[in-house]
Design a protein around this nucleic acid. Structure first.
Length: 551
RNA sequence: GCGCUUGUAGCUCAACGGAUAGAGCAUCUGACUACGGAUCAGAAGGUUGGGGGUUCGAGUCCCUCCAAGCGCACCA
């Protein structure tokens, strides 16, 4: 008996009561929410359905709750139903009904926690998309961790997810990058608005090595040489970093390709046909104010060059033409000003904002040293890259730390904390719980405890009831995390599971004390131990964190 | 000035509009001749930034004020 089962049962009972005329006909709730009460005395599960819907039936909540409770108490596996406060319905399950779940989880294995919320939906999730003018720094690293987890969460709901990275390899910043490389090759100071740093020197040297005759070229040709070579090297480095971080992208999309293929002009032509393009002051404009933007946007500048948004138009159209039902962009808070114009663009194409196009804004990562914020600066040596972070704490700790907070909150990364390699990351708490499940299983095997028996009624200790209830919530957590686009919910949940598991371990032995016989209860607990193992492993996988057998 | 996000324990952060606001770290006190002590039990720690409002019920929704980060281009 899981919370989902309870929910279904309650809906069924409400329908029956209506048919019997006990309840008046009124629209039934689409879903009955079952919660785990914070207070143990309130039973195993609780629902507030009476308070939320009694009004619609013209009844007071307690009266409604009483009628529902009478029927609910008859359901097999339900031991006790109480009505509390303004109309909470508190449900206590029999130990056997609750314990049944251990076996279900073990049998579901890697599938436990999956759902069908987005079955068949083609999603394009674009994240990181850091400019290829330098290595990925800590901010982009956050999106790498969160975005990949989110993709896994969507996939667990049946979505077909394409992870995509957009390389801004077109336009002025790449020009600056190319000129910076050329300057470095000539041992000249970096251009005023250019890039500098050790990595620029290294890339320049690498391009020089590949093209020994570069110095004979005109500056314009040499710049092209350095552009192509530099961008290529940067791509390679970024891809390698992402791979080392455990993040796989299905598509690396090059902005430049939109210009080379004519997709930009095609997109503008389409908008022109739709009547949303006009000309003024020598420039081509998108009338985005029609769709809620606070001003119209220049698409082609008066000098004939495309504005940045031109690429975005073509890129979005390209995604839709590739068959994606939903294009999700993950952007940093410094880009939140784009949301309105992007949504306007979506509308202009005749699509539905928020459905076909969704933009997730995440807050930036702050660097902190000695309690004071520091600005990332190459000269001051305070740039923290993805590689730096991984070198300092490892992939598991890095991904976990970046994923366990809501993207709506700013994250402080403490430089000293990083270099200390401390044990205060909760990931170790969770991983240790998983390792423990494996060690317990090993001990059980060597002492001849097997899964040949399962008597769920024996899982009656308070810590077992607590652990079972916690495990039962995993599918709901995964569903919620998908709807809210919030991978941190999974991390927080795992910490709770780990806590429940550790407490259970402390109270209930899977292997008998030496000299004592193996009994049914030990064999039954082995199922629960494996169930905990399954949930911890499935959850850690969603976060891209390893589930070690020993630490 | 306008907009987006945030403000919760000493610190980092949780909490579908639900009951006594929770974890980890840090602090203090206990627990292995018992499946790994990277653990557990317990203590302490809060006017959820201030003030109004909505309702059976508000950290959560609305208004307002305060504070912080970010953004308001024919830059990318």
């Amino acid at each position: 008996m899981t919370p989902a089962d309870l929910s279904k049962n309650i809906l069924l009972i409400l329908q029956q009561l209506q048919q019997q005329g006990v309840l008046p006909t009124a629209e039934l709730p689409a879903e009955v929410v079952i919660e785990r009460p914070k207070n143990r005395e309130h039973g195993d599960w609780a629902t507030n359905v009476a308070m939320q819907f009694a009004g619609k039936f013209g009844m007071n909540p307690r009266e409604f709750a009483t009628k529902l409770a009478q029927e609910l108490a008859k359901v097999t596996g339900v031991e006790k139903v109480d009505i509390a406060g303004p109309g909470f319905i508190n449900i206590t399950l029999s130990a056997a009904a609750a314990g049944e779940l251990a076996k279900q989880i073990v049998e579901a294995g890697g599938n436990f926690g999956k759902g069908s919320l987005y079955a068949g939906l083609k999603m394009n999730l674009e994240f990181v998309s850091a400019n290829p003018t330098g290595p990925i720094h800590i901010g982009g690293t956050r999106w790498a961790a969160v975005g990949d987890s989110l993709a896994r969460i969507f996939e667990a709901q049946g979505a077909n997810v394409t992870r995509e990275y957009y390389f801004n390899d077109h336009g002025a910043q790449i020009d600056r990058f190319a000129r910076s490389l050329l300057a470095a090759a000539k041992s000249e100071p970096a251009p005023e608005d250019g890039y500098s740093g050790e990595y620029i020197n290294q890339i320049a040297a690498a391009v020089v090595k590949e093209n020994p005759s570069w110095a004979k070229l005109e500056d314009s040709e040499a710049t092209e040489l350095f552009r192509a070579g530099g961008v290529e090297l940067m791509f390679g480095e970024i891809k390698q970093s992402l791979k080392d971080f455990g993040v796989h992208f299905d598509v690396f999309f090059h902005e430049n390709s939109l210009y080379e293929s004519g997709a930009v002009h095609k997109a503008i032509a389409k908008l022109r046909d739709l009547g949303h393009i006009y000309e003024q002051d020598g420039a081509i404009w998108l009338r985005s104010t029609t769709f809620g933007d606070d001003r119209d946007r220049v698409v082609i500048k008066s000098d004939g060059e495309a504005a940045y948004i031109a690429g975005d138009l073509a890129y979005y159209l390209d995604k839709r033409e590739r068959g994606f039902d939903r294009a999700i962009y993950m952007l940093g808070a410094d880009h939140h000003g784009y949301v309105q114009r992007m949504m306007a663009m979506c509308s202009a194409f005749g699509d539905e904002p928020g459905v076909n196009l969704e933009i997730l804004i995440g807050q930036l990562v702050n660097l902190v040293k000695d309690g004071a914020p520091v600005r990332m600066s190459k000269r001051a040596g305070t740039v923290v890259t993805m590689e730096d972070l991984v070198d300092a704490v490892g992939v598991d700790a890095a991904r976990y730390a970046l994923t366990r907070s809501s993207i709506n909150s700013m994250l402080d990364i403490d430089l000293d904390q990083l270099s200390k390699k401390t044990n205060d990351n909760p990931v170790f708490y969770v991983q240790y719980a998983h390792a423990r499940t494996k060690q317990v299983a090993n001990n059980a095997a060597s002492l001849g405890v097997e899964t040949s028996e399962f008597d769920p009624g024996l899982l009656s200790h308070a810590s077992e009831s607590d652990l079972l209830a916690k495990l039962a919530q995993f599918p709901a957590i995964m569903n919620h995390a998908a709807i809210e686009r919030a991978p941190h919910l999974v991390a927080r949940y795992l910490e709770e599971v780990a806590g429940s598991y550790h407490r259970w371990y402390d109270n209930c032995r899977v292997t008998p004390l030496s000299g004592n016989p193996v009994e049914t209860i030990h064999r039954t607990r082995l199922w629960l131990n494996t169930a905990a193992s399954v949930v911890l492993a499935n959850g850690l996988k969603v976060l891209g964190v390893s589930a070690p057998e020993r630490m």
